[in-house]
Design a binder for these strands. Structure first.
Length: 300
DNA sequence: GTCCAGGAAGAAA
DNA sequence: TTTCTTCATGGA
């Protein structure tokens, strides 16, 4: 059975802009983007649903397919989509700042309505940050696909198989040698299994991170775990905890974008980069998002 | 063949 | 405290 709901969005919001970001040409295995419809599985209290998300005049249309549907699960699914796709942030203050900077102003126009697309699941967000360390993105997506299709649960709907990111308990017990054949480095294996064990044990949780009042505390709590450095901590805080002040300093994509726009000549100009973000206080992660988006030239 | 990717940890200086 | 080395693979 299929149920359909409407999720309101902020005024400037553009689902099309989301779709373009979600479908930048990488081999993503956790969702599909086809004809203006995003589909992915979601697991709520051991119940698996296929979500379909598309645009409608009043906001987003979210459909849920499953054998049975609990009201509580419906609310959780809508909350997940609202968090993932950042549907409630009013972007106009961000554009006001962006347009004051001539060399950045074109980004506001080109990607109008693009929010910060997140990764609501903490374990998934951390794993993705570790997988993506120091390797090119296409290889990172290859690694993620091997991990997900081997250790994740899946469901076939309409001839298409969809996947959930693996559970911490499953990855914690993964065989090192098998992960090696998937081309994970020994350090990535060690980091991923350590994070999996911490998440399974509950010593690392989104709920606890959210309870820490200061940004620096959340950063330090993440960085206590092997495999999470400054870049990963900030990446996770930006994509999962939605800390707007989280900037993944040192990020290769960030450097590329700023070089391409002519703001810096190489990645050594770190002072200039931090100076730029000072002017975007409260909207730092949005600037990062737009800079990343500016790297994929395909569509606007 | 070389360089560097959406870095991090451990060793060495 | 700062800098160097290693990790692993693949695309340019």
């Amino acid at each position: 059975m299929t149920a359909s709901f409407t999720l309101p969005t902020s005024s400037d919001y553009s689902f099309a802009a989301c779709c373009h970001f979600l479908d930048r040409g990488y081999d993503e295995c956790l969702y599909t983007v086809q004809e203006g419809c995003v589909k992915r599985l979601i697991c709520i209290e051991e119940q698996i649903y296929l979500l379909g998300i598309s645009a409608q005049p009043a906001g987003l249309q979210v459909t849920m397919q499953s054998e049975l549907l609990h009201d509580r699960h419906q609310q959780a699914a809508l909350a997940y989509v609202a968090d993932w796709l950042d549907t409630s942030t009013d972007l106009s203050p961000f554009y006001a700042i962006l347009e004051q900077t001539p060399w950045l102003a074109p980004l506001a126009k080109a990607y109008k309505g693009l929010p910060v697309v997140g990764i609501p699941d903490l374990f998934e967000a951390i794993c993705w940050s570790i997988i993506g360390q120091q390797i090119n993105l296409s290889f990172a997506y290859q690694l993620k696909r091997r991990l997900v299709t081997h250790y994740g649960r899946s469901k076939e709907v309409g001839g298409q198989r969809y996947w959930l990111f693996p559970e911490p308990a499953v990855l914690a017990g993964a065989e090192d040698e098998l992960l090696r054949t998937m081309k994970f480095s020994r350090s990535k294996i060690k980091y991923l299994k350590g994070i999996a064990a911490a998440c399974r044990a509950g010593t690392l949780s989104k709920q606890h991170l959210l309870s820490l009042p200061a940004f620096a505390e959340r950063q330090n709590h993440l960085m206590r775990h092997k495999g999470i450095g400054v870049w990963s901590a900030n990446y996770v805080l930006m994509k999962c905890l939605r800390d707007v002040e989280a900037v993944p300093y040192g990020d290769a994509g960030l450097h590329q974008a700023l070089i391409k726009l002519g703001y810096i000549k190489d990645k050594t100009e770190q002072e200039k980069i931090s100076a730029l973000f000072v002017g975007f206080a409260g909207w730092e992660s949005y600037l990062v998002m737009y800079l990343w988006r500016s790297l994929s030239a395909a569509k606007s």
